[in-house]
Amino acid sequence: MNLRPDVLLAIFCMALATYAARAGGYAVLRLWRPPRFVEAMLTHMPGCIFVSFILPSVAAGGPWHVLAAGVAVVMMVFTRMLTASLLAGVGALWFMLG
């Protein structure tokens, strides 16, 4: 159960960098009133962040990952149940890689 100084320093710097990334986006807005175009961009940001994060990650996994992601999406569209959808996605991948 030890806590070495170099590890602690690394953890501290990682935590600081993460908090700066988390809070930074909002901090900029608190200090500076954005033009209307940027405000309009922010309303589109949530979906765009998710799409551009998920799509490359899933594609990198190969065709089975793409198919399993499709299963999760279709399940969510029809059931609107998060747990069922993520289980369906994981189950589909497990079955296909099985």
Partner: peptide, 19 residues
């Protein structure tokens, strides 16, 4: 395959963001 749980969750959440 269990590690796909994170991405599968994000896929399902993406559906809820559709307007």
């Amino acid at each position: 395959p269990l590690l796909f749980a994170g991405l599968a969750t994000m896929c399902a959440l993406l559906v809820t963001l559709w307007r």
